[in-house]
């Protein structure tokens, strides 16, 4: 009990120190991307009793590191997400490059999934969710009134936390996307798409003799690769992955990581992960979220070897999590 209280206090203090810039351990000045002036810094802070209050008043808009990238393909600019009164994503700006894996990390409930789901408008189906800011895909605003989310999701595919194959055959699972989008000219064409997708998902060898067996009869790792094959089959430009390995054993996880590595040449991949090792293994860049704020973005090795922000450091060294 006492220890818990202590750690809470400790966390609060580190957060405060960080915000008020009283951290003497950090010689480097953090680079502030969005330099909206922080209002009433000290007075507000004095009253603050919880972390979330702190973040609401203070952390907003200040991202350390480099949110921009060389060849941006998808750009999120000043994105805010509200679930009713809950300000779940606060003023996040982030660019996603082509052929690049970016990992979103951060403690549970910090809004990684929420942010990810903005990128293919999956939040549209949540009635309480409200989104402001702009997100563009190849220069086109994805929240444009004229843009159909159906068309968007064909370009921005998604792989979920829990493997969720359809209760259909393996073949039909992979063929579903091409079928609804009319991607195949004929049956042979569709067969081809299914085969190459399974091949690229590294699943073909295991399932090529049992394509008409239910997708749900596969093991968890195979199911997740089937879900990746299903996503690849639509030939998207961006693939979003929300903790794709959290339900898998280490061996299956390693296979998925290899797979992500292989396909990363062809897609922009955004992966949410709880595992620091995974982020380090598969991603080029890492974005650290904290209580709805994008705290720091940088190249993967820099984040893990030399994080700029105290919160990031605490997280990657295992002090918050």
């Amino acid at each position: 009990m006492d220890r818990l209280q202590q750690s809470d206090n400790y966390r609060r203090m580190t957060a405060m120190k960080e915000l008020t810039g009283m951290d003497e351990d950090k010689p480097e000045e953090p680079r502030v991307v969005d330099s909206s002036p922080a209002k009433m810094v000290s007075s507000k802070l004095a009253e603050s009793t919880t972390e979330s209050e702190l973040s609401l008043t203070e952390l907003s808009g200040r991202t350390v590191g480099d949110v921009r990238c060389a060849d941006p393909f998808m750009i999120a600019e000043n994105v805010n997400v509200y679930y009713g009164d809950n300000h779940a994503i606060q003023n996040v700006t982030l660019e996603f490059g082509k052929s690049q894996v970016i990992a979103l990390i951060g403690p549970s409930g910090c809004g990684k999934s929420t942010f990810l789901r903005c990128l293919n408008r999956m939040n549209d189906s949540i009635e309480s969710a409200r989104i402001t800011g702009t997100i563009t895909l190849d220069g086109q605003d994805i929240y444009d009134k004229d843009l159909d989310p159906v068309a968007l999701r064909a370009r921005v595919g998604m792989v979920f936390q829990k493997p969720n194959p359809f209760p259909k055959s393996i073949y039909d699972n992979v063929a579903y996307g091409p079928r609804i989008h009319g991607l195949a000219a004929d049956r042979a064409d569709l067969d081809g798409i299914v085969h190459t997708s399974l091949e690229r998902a590294g699943l073909l060898k295991e399932v090529k003799d049992r394509l008409d067996e239910p997708g749900t009869s596969l093991s968890g790792g195979q199911q997740q690769r089937l879900c990746i094959a299903r996503t690849i089959a639509v030939d998207p430009e961006v693939i979003l992955m929300d903790e794709p390995c959290s339900a898998l054993d280490p061996i299956a996880t390693a296979r998925i990581e290899d797979l992500i590595d292989e396909i990363s040449e062809n897609y922009a991949i955004v992966i949410v992960t709880h595992s620091m090792q995974q982020a380090a293994r598969v991603s080029r860049r890492v974005a650290y979220f904290h209580l709805g704020l994008l705290v720091e973005v940088d190249d993967t090795d820099r984040i893990f070897t030399n994080p700029q922000h105290k919160l990031t450091e605490d997280y990657v060294t295992g002090r918050i999590g």
């Binding site: 999956m122 968007l152 595919g157 969720n164 359809f166 639509v234």
Partner: peptide, 15 residues
């Protein structure tokens, strides 16, 4: 019907 099935289909671009 499990929401994960709906999400899977929506995520693939089903209307």
């Amino acid at each position: 019907v499990p929401p994960s099935i709906r999400e899977a289909a929506l995520g693939l671009g089903a209307s």
